[in-house]
Amino acid sequence: MTTVAVQTRIELLAGRGWTAVCDLDLLLPGRGVAVLLPDGRQAAVFRDARDRIHATANRDPFTGAYVLSRGLLGSTADGRVYVASPLLKHRFDLETGECLDDESVRIPVYAVRLAEV
């Protein structure tokens, strides 16, 4: 079997259009990057230990700062993957956006896909 060197690119659905994020290789498992969305909002895109890609808003609703992309990923005992805000350590479920420490708070999540280019 011959393999062709292709780059896998992460794309994110903001509104009804896909925004290019970056090459998959650029993203370290367990970390995130910040993405500037077309309307000026910010998203955070993460790669977890099992190489799944997640995207949420970048804004930490507790402090207002745009920092979630710089948080550390973790998983709960029942397997929910979350990001912990680097400011006051609130945890947000990467699938649902729900805050694990305060269920009245939820952040937007975005759909992502991998495109070969």
Binding site: D48, A49, L72, G74
Partner: peptide
């Protein structure tokens, strides 16, 4: 397949 967490990683 666990991720670890913000406590044990650092």
């Amino acid at each position: 397949d666990a991720e670890g967490c913000e406590v044990c990683k650092p």
